[in-house]
Design a protein around this nucleic acid. Sequence first.
DNA 1: GTCTATAATTAGATAGAC
DNA 2: GTCTATCTAATTATAGAC
Lengths: 207, 207
Amino acid sequence: MNTGAAIEAAPQEDGRSRILAAALEVFSTSGFEGASLRQIADRAGVMHQLVVYHFKTKEGLWRAVITSILDDNIARLPAWRTRLEAVSPAQALRTVVREFVLFTSRRPEFHRIATFEGRADNDRIRWLLQTYTRPYFEFSTSLIRAAQTAGAARPGDPGRLHYAVIGLVTTSFVFAHEYRAMTGLEPFDPAEIERIAALTFDFLAIP
Amino acid sequence: MNTGAAIEAAPQEDGRSRILAAALEVFSTSGFEGASLRQIADRAGVMHQLVVYHFKTKEGLWRAVITSILDDNIARLPAWRTRLEAVSPAQALRTVVREFVLFTSRRPEFHRIATFEGRADNDRIRWLLQTYTRPYFEFSTSLIRAAQTAGAARPGDPGRLHYAVIGLVTTSFVFAHEYRAMTGLEPFDPAEIERIAALTFDFLAIP
DNA sequence: GTCTATAATTAGATAGAC
DNA sequence: GTCTATCTAATTATAGAC
């Protein structure tokens, strides 16, 4: 999966890109309500009115941030599905788990945003769940179900297992500061990332 | 573990208690920056200036909310430690995992707040980590370590396993709305709570 | 302990110059 | 596309009556 390079705006890029990059950072640390357009604009080095010019409203900016991260990934799911049909259910599971861990380590901001929003119910959340969360949930649980049928995955409700995996994978990256302070481990170290992937596959798979 | 009954304020209780109960709700859905004293006061049925009277600042209120939830639990850890020395490491692990799942299901708000704050680094967070997160982390990892020594727990860094468990346990409760919408399962159903506890112990233990 | 009144600051959003 | 100027509403916090 791609990390959505468009959002990695360098200082010399145009205002719109710099605003998107700044907004990703601020929304992921302060939440939607806690983020302010001035805070985002300051970080992007522009006047806060320029944010309104480009994205109309704060909610429009929020949706643009999510889209810039996830659109490519969701569009790529059908191709992934085809490719994974060529390998065993266990191998497919291992591949997808690892890709998910790598995506989370590259873009912990998205899961930080998801942890802010997953508890509420409003237009913004319904749009997120329907547009991005649901397709990935269906993708993931269908793979788990196939692996269970092949006797390669732990039994139990695929949805419950999916969310167990989400929690298991994302915690060290989402709470990187706390994780570092408590465990002394560096969550973004490549070896540590692979250990999380291995631990998650081990949880999910039947040897 | 107790749920901190002081915060379960009935409408006829005094302002301070009603404010604490309302603040727990609002901080856990909007985060510290996203929460407003007016929003909290409205929910408590008082004027927002009364919040300032009782808790001086917004941060003072936030700390009082955390304290009202966690103080009893942390104070009870030494007694737990003594009690668990009488049973096998595997049984101790099973008991503590189940208690943690039950606590999370009764007070998902605390873990919602933790997901808001675990990514930042400021006075408020340092206080939370030092006062409450650290003692429980030490308690939990020492039990994991003892179980590993006895050959009853999965090998691997105890801190990494601790946070894997935190993620695995809390996800369905913290993201209850999303979990319900995607999986069709009811996270707070007693049977579902026990399934999460069983799944977590199964992840951690060596049969 | 709870209220009214109010100050000082910051919020999201609009209008218009260049 | 980016800026200045400005509006209205909401924010945290203070002062003081009862």
